[in-house]
Amino acid sequence: MGTYTGYPYSRGSIHITSTTDVLTGYSFDTGFLAHPSDLKIQLWGYKMQREIVRRLPFYDGDVALGHPEFAAGSAAALVLPSSDGDIEGKMAAVEDINYSKEDDLAIEDWIRGNLATTWHCLGTCAMRARDAGGVVDRHLNVYGTAGLKVADLSMVPENVGANTANTAMAVGEKAAMIIAGELGVSV
């Protein structure tokens, strides 16, 4: 089980640093966890997914790979799989874990080292007002250029809470209509 933030507050950036080096001539910052709310959401998500898993009918202990190392004696310490297979006994004993401040810090540190993404990144050339950080106008034109449009997921200004394939198709269809209109072709 994993947790992902569908609408993170953090923002990354990408900037061209060379006019000739197309392989490494850019500066890229994912921005992951740059906003403190995103870490708090992930902390809550870790705790919630752990409570859900501990109540599944086949739960027989924690898999160490998916958890931070908690201090000795912590109420959050992992329950290792049993050798006797007594899953029913464990189910009867499940109670909410009371996490200490130290436990929260261990989880936050683990999140920073193990954060994953669904890699549906978008918005590097966001369609919004130029003074609000936008790169593309409503006609897909790149500000400050002539004859250059962007028609891919980089111009979508905010995350979509779904697989991005449908959004990409909608962008392509709208781009075709805009370009056809500019060429005088009726669609």
Score class of each variant (00 low, 15 high):
N159S: 10
A129M: 14
F58S: 08
G133Q: 11
G172D: 09
M169H: 14
H120M: 06
A176L: 05
L115Q: 13
A64S: 08
G172N: 07
V63G: 11
V156G: 01
T117D: 09
A151V: 12
S83W: 02
S74G: 02
A93Y: 07
C125Q: 07
M127W: 11
R130W: 07
G147R: 15
A116H: 14
A106F: 05
D109H: 09
D86I: 04
T145G: 15
E95P: 13
G85S: 09
G144T: 15
L153F: 08
M155H: 04
N159Y: 14
T117E: 10
F58Y: 06
A92R: 01
A93T: 12
R128V: 08
D104A: 04
A175P: 00
D109Q: 07
D103K: 04
S83L: 07
A77F: 02
L153T: 13
V63K: 12
T124Y: 13
N114G: 15
A170T: 03
A71I: 01
V150L: 02
M91P: 02
S82H: 12
T164E: 10
V156N: 05
G66E: 06
A146W: 04
D96V: 05
C121T: 12
E158K: 15
T124N: 10
V160L: 05
A126V: 11
Y143K: 07
R130H: 12
E158L: 09
G147K: 13
E69R: 06
N114Q: 06
G113I: 14
L140Y: 11
V79W: 02
L148D: 08
I87H: 00
D152F: 13
D104I: 03
L65W: 08
G66R: 03
G134E: 07
V136D: 00
V94F: 10
L78A: 04
G61V: 13
D84M: 03
S74Q: 02
I111C: 00
H139W: 07
D103Y: 06
G89Y: 08
M177P: 03
N159I: 07
Y99P: 12
A72D: 03
V150F: 15
C125V: 15
M127N: 15
M91F: 08
E88T: 11
Y99Q: 08
L153Y: 10
G133P: 11
K90G: 05
P157K: 02
G73R: 01
P68T: 03
A175F: 00
D104L: 02
A106H: 04
A168K: 04
F58M: 12
M155F: 12
A126H: 15
D60C: 14
E88V: 13
G113F: 06
H120C: 06
G133M: 15
N159T: 14
A76R: 00
F58E: 14
L80H: 11
G134K: 00
V136S: 01
R128N: 14
L65S: 07
V156M: 13
Y143T: 04
R138H: 03
V150M: 09
S154L: 07
E102W: 05
A93V: 09
G113C: 06
H120V: 13
D131H: 14
A176E: 00
A146I: 14
